[in-house]
Design a binder for these strands. Structure first.
Length: 559
DNA sequence: AGTTTCGGCGCC
DNA sequence: AAAGGGCGCCGAAACT
């Protein structure tokens, strides 16, 4: 029978549900259920739930122990479809989509709230305009037709399905939390920073380093104030334009060493110190809010706690529960492998078809054995390096892997010219932030007077160049994010039959928390999911996506 | 006084 | 060696 059902929260705390036919329209009556969890639990044969917003519905289900196999997130799909259609500036709520269909006034999107420490407030609040189930399905049915009009309909369907799966994963990670030992964290802080003083001021070690810096300059200097430091260097006869580490490092002055150490420890103190611990860790779990597809490229972001920037020394505090393990899995050289897959460059695909160190392989072929140079060249090509040794290295890369370099060059040109640029699955980079709706898409804004100027190498404006670099990186980083979604979806599926839980994801790295006896099965599941994700995302190519996996009790012991 | 931007740096 | 992509976070500085 029907395996797709739709679900829409009602005003009274209940939900409306209805089975869907192949056309995406109701294939049976709409039923009102008082208890959302029971509505789902009592329909175990449903393999995909269509709903407005995973963030609205799914946390409530998880709180009562209910999980779903798949979903389709209408508002996420709307965002992806609008982007693909070159309409990324338009409101993306389901209500807006409905209004566009009916020709009424289109409501603007509600402002996004930012997370507050420990608030968890998003769990029970609808964060958008509710839509009656029949209206939601009107939007859904039209979205099905819009998929068919996409540049690659099958890929577009895969993209929206994959990102919906990612939203389930994100909600489940938010629910599970990352195992966190506050006592270990405190021990690390004490070890690095020394005792805290009453009143919330700097801990002992920072105060000592500040004194050393002041002594070296011969006057009181606050090392946390860049302007103060620049002035102090100037008085010592040393011109520095900023206090960035790479600029200070080469300066010959006794203040440099304690200053750099101060900056390192200061960073840990303010970003992951005692107040962070107080704010973000509860009952042995760090609970950031993962947001799938939170960036233009499709990379995830987190709200609160800086979960994607946990310093290495602090990872000591991430410890598995007793009898459990952390399976830490890191994709090896993901971005160049993705470049091989999307460009179909024969040489690079052959290199990426091996599981061995890709940079070493590239180096052997194009850089006479200098791995570091090869790595810089590959990353420079992806990031759009414009100067330094990178250019010389790029030439060597271009000779050996012309199709790969041409692929990112073409993306850069499209970006500079203001054309749409897409990932392999069809996530689309807006041409530029529109002047009307400048809510900060992260896209460098277009200049007003360059629209009709032909693209000439070397003559593009600074802004156009920035857009070019963005677009060049977008196709690789974004396609990598496409692949990562498929990986997560596959891994989630394999973990569903185990006690294992996904607890962390960071671009090309995933952590699974599982009983010790499941660890080897999880390692195997990651490899299988990676292979499958490679085939599903990019089709049949020789490219492999190997992982480095470690089964550990403590995150810091991985790699 | 409250809000936004900046400088710097953590991660990939 | 030098500076090219994506983020979030913090305090201070620069606004209103």
């Amino acid at each position: 029978m029907t395996d797709r059902w739709a679900l829409a929260p009602a005003e009274d705390g209940g939900v409306d549900v209805a089975p869907l036919g192949p056309d995406g329209l109701p294939a049976g009556p709409v039923v009102r259920e008082e208890d959302p969890s029971r509505a789902v639990r009592s329909r175990p044969d449903v393999t995909r739930w269509v709903w407005r917003s995973t963030a609205e519905v799914y946390p409530r289900l998880l709180a009562t122990g209910v999980r779903v196999e798949r979903c389709y997130d209408v508002e996420d799909a709307e965002t992806l479809l609008l982007g693909h259609e070159g309409r990324s500036g338009e409101p993306r709520s389901a209500a807006a989509a409905l209004a566009r269909l009916r020709g009424g006034p289109v409501p603007p999107d509600p402002p996004q709230r930012s997370a507050e420490p420990g608030a968890q407030s998003t769990l029970f609040e609808p964060q958008g305009t509710r839509l009656p189930l029949t209206d939601l399905l009107t939007v859904y049915a039209e979205q099905q037709r819009r998929h068919a009009r996409a540049e690659h309909p099958d890929r577009m369907r895969l993209l929206t399905a994959a990102e919906s799966a990612g939203m389930l994963v994100a909600a489940e990670m938010n629910h599970a939390g990352l195992p966190w030992r506050a006592d270990v964290h405190r021990a690390v802080l004490h070890d690095l920073l020394g005792e805290r003083y009453a009143g919330g001021g700097e801990p002992r070690r920072l105060a000592e380093l500040a004194d050393e810096v002041s002594a070296a300059f011969g006057r009181r200097v606050r090392p946390d104030l860049p302007a103060d430091v620049v002035k102090a260097f100037a008085q010592a006869g040393i011109k520095v334009r900023s206090t960035r580490r790479w600029e200070i490092e080469s300066v010959d002055h006794p203040a440099v060493k304690p200053l750099l150490e101060y900056k390192r420890l200061y960073r840990i103190w303010v970003a992951h110190g005692w107040s962070w611990l107080q704010d973000w860790v509860r009952e042995g779990r760090f609970r950031p809010e993962f947001l799938a597809g939170g960036t233009v490229t499709g990379r995830w972001v987190t709200n609160g706690g800086g979960a994607l920037q946990i310093p290495r020394v602090i990872r000591r505090a991430v410890v598995a529960d007793p009898g459990w393990r952390l399976v830490v899995a890191d994709a090896d050289q993901m971005e160049p492998r993705v470049l091989a897959a999307i460009s179909r460059d024969p040489g690079l695909m052959e290199v990426a078809g091996r599981e061995s160190d890709l940079y070493q392989e590239v180096s052997d072929r194009a850089f006479s054995g200098d791995r570091a140079q090869a790595k810089l060249a590959v990353l420079g090509a992806i990031y759009g390096q414009t100067s330094g040794d990178g250019l010389k290295n790029l030439a060597a890369l271009r000779r050996r892997f012309p199709q790969a370099v041409a692929y990112v060059d073409e993306a850069a040109r499209a970006g500079e010219e203001g054309r749409l640029v897409r990932t392999w699955l069809g996530r689309t980079c807006p041409p530029a932030a529109s002047a009307a709706d400048d809510t900060g898409e992260g896209i460098p804004a277009a200049e007003e007077d360059t629209g009709d100027r032909a693209w000439v190498p070397g003559y593009a404006s600074t802004d156009a160049r920035a857009r070019g670099r963005f677009a060049r990186n977008f196709v690789v980083q974004g396609s990598a994010a496409d692949w990562a979604l498929l990986l997560l979806a596959g891994l989630r599926r394999r973990c569903a039959s185990m006690a294992a839980e996904l607890v962390f994801f960071q671009h090309d790295e995933v952590i699974v928390h599982c009983p010790e006896e499941e660890a080897e099965a999880v390692v195997a599941a990651i490899r299988e999911a990676a292979d499958l994700a490679g085939r599903l995302t990019f089709g049949e190519t020789p490219v492999r996506f190997p992982f480095t996996t470690a089964v550990v009790e403590c995150y810091a012991d991985a790699k």
